[in-house]
Nucleic acid binder design. Structure first.
Lengths: 335, 335
DNA sequence: AAACATTTCGAAACCGGTTTCGATTTGACT
DNA sequence: AGTCAAATCGAAACCGGTTTCGAAATGTTT
């Protein structure tokens, strides 16, 4: 491995001067700068990130913290979309991404410890379960963080406009003539709560009574199976809903399966609307009508905010991104 | 930040001894070991990974190199599945994962340079385009690598049994009575070529002539759209196939869309079988019959092999994992 | 030519660890 | 008490950079 000392020896300058060249110090004459650059080039010099981080206390690394109960991990389109968007802007700004898990080197340790050991400059947190004590520990630390789909006074946050999206969904069903509108919730996650709130708010605004039998809490893992189970319960209601607004697309897919295996049709008998617009739903039959949240943009925004904090920006920010109704085939209008 | 020097000062021992405690050296008495451990614990000591890496030349970091033409990135179920499986075993062995891109710190640089700068211990490569010069440069380096869906003499590789899977697919269609079996290929990727080879081999083995009009190369990006385009071309053939074997599930989904928009039915008019078994296809109507490859297991295996190499194992290994026919609804038996 | 300002450079300390090898202490055995 | 082996510890060099601050060289002004 070529070091600045090798370059110093060859060029006759000191390691100090060599270092200065790579760090754009002003007190290096153009001539020596050129000479050092050239020999560095031809010797194939590459800086050692560890050595640099050791002195500067900057690793140019961002920790990615995600963990979700369904076990799908990175396979989940929401996570994957956000991370992809996050990666785009963070790498363009010179940061690399590193996964942070709860244990390191075989030994158990907390997220916070892992972050400190690795010396990450910041962390992006995508973690539905906001009761995790290790997560809370991280929140109280001084490490720059950005949280997705969370609320916080101490860290920056970014999320979709879940309220508005839910209201739009319900209103859309209302416009189609539906009055018996059920809701499959997403458990006690931030997004799930906001969407439930939006649902209730919209129902109230439209003067529609909320039938308690018509709001079911799916489990917080947002899986297809959890949607199926919730829908089966919904199908036991004394009066069947004509439409159901599911808190996530997976839940909606599960609901459609349950409806169908009951011998009913979507949207013939029951209309279904989801939330997310994950890629697969446009290929379903019927293609799912849903509220699209732009996970890629969420990731972009999160990276912008985190890097802002890392690079000295003080205030904690929060951003809410708009969502959009995507009309496809799973909701029908009734007389 | 607490360092071993702090601990040394408090306990009265030298930094050397403190370091030895954490590295399980034998020449430390149980008494001092205990004392050092305790004060380290209560002072909240955490090791500095950068400092450690600087001396030991081991970063306990594995680079993840992936890049795929469709731009879906980590969203693609194949990548996500492999990475998830890879992450599981590598973190359990003490390694963290870091994404490696072509540029770092705003400046363009090759994969290899990026790896060297970051000092990763090894790299897992998931890269369909094996002509990328930067990829080739990495192949020629001495950095431990494991390649997915590639062939190589110099690096370890792991892949599914694409040949056997394709043969199984064709034979299955044959058993259902199909004789006009078309193929939508996956371009000039390793997997695509093997699957085409399997298709041709099976057709020959079954005594079926291969109609040149019936084998179309989809583009190498394995997208739904590319499958749709390929199928549209297939539908121009002078004699329509009764079944089509697509080299990937996305291609199969696209094919189904094309067939349907032509007014034909799947599997009524044309049967479709895919390859991959990505999660969504079981929710389609009809649910897609396909060859399942176990991406999670591929990731596990890849991690095992890479870590073996990193930790001193010499030989380059290669592993081929079995695939499995998953029968669902998209293929029908004819008379 | 002297006085001063500006450039250009490098010595040295530091970041937080690891590892070699020799010194010292302790224990075992005559 | 003397000898020898084993156990325990630490000084020092090193990993590859960054940064401060003073010195030397050069240029400018009078």
């Amino acid at each position: 491995m070529i070091t600045i000392y090798d370059i110093a020896k060859i060029t006759g300058f000191s390691p100090t001067t060599v270092s200065k060249v790579f760090n754009d110090y002003a007190d290096v004459s153009p001539k020596t700068r050129r000479k050092i650059m050239e020999t560095a080039e031809q010797m194939g010099y590459l800086p050692n990130a560890h050595a640099r981080s050791l002195t500067t206390k900057r690793s140019w690394t961002i920790g990615v913290l995600f963990n979700e109960p369904s076990g799908a991990g990175i396979l989940h389109p929401y996570f994957a979309g956000v991370i992809e968007g996050f990666k785009k802007v963070s790498t363009s700004r010179g940061y690399d991404l590193m996964f942070i898990s709860k244990d390191i080197g075989g030994k158990k340790s907390s997220y916070l410890e892992h972050c400190k050991i690795r010396g990450v400059d910041g962390v992006v947190v995508i973690l539905p379960d906001f009761t995790d004590p290790y997560f809370l520990e991280l929140l109280e630390s001084s490490i720059p963080c950005v949280l997705l789909d969370q609320e916080s006074d101490t860290k920056s946050t970014v999320y979709s406009d879940n309220m508005a999206g839910s209201i739009r969904a319900v209103e859309y069903l209302y416009e189609l003539g539906h009055r018996q509108i059920a809701h499959i919730g997403g458990g006690n996650t931030f997004a799930g709560e906001k969407r439930l709130e939006g649902y209730l708010h919209a129902m109230k605004g439209l003067g529609l009574p909320v039938n308690p039998e018509h709001v079911i809490q799916g489990s917080y893992d947002y899986t297809v199976d959890s949607g199926r189970v919730a829908m089966e319960e919904l199908l036991q209601a004394s009066v069947l809903p004509s439409a159901v607004f599911a808190s996530g697309d997976n839940l909606a897919v599960g609901a459609m399966m349950a409806i169908r295996s009951r011998g009913l049709k979507v949207p013939g008998d029951i209309s279904v609307i989801g939330f997310d617009d994950i890629e697969m739903v446009k290929f379903l039959t019927p293609a799912l009508t849903t509220i699209r949240q732009d996970t890629y943009a969420l990731g972009n925004k999160a990276a912008d905010m985190l890097i802002y904090t890392i690079e000295g920006g003080e205030e904690v920010q929060s951003a809410m991104l708009p969502v959009e109704l995507v009309i496809r085939e799973s909701c029908r209008s009734i007389e």
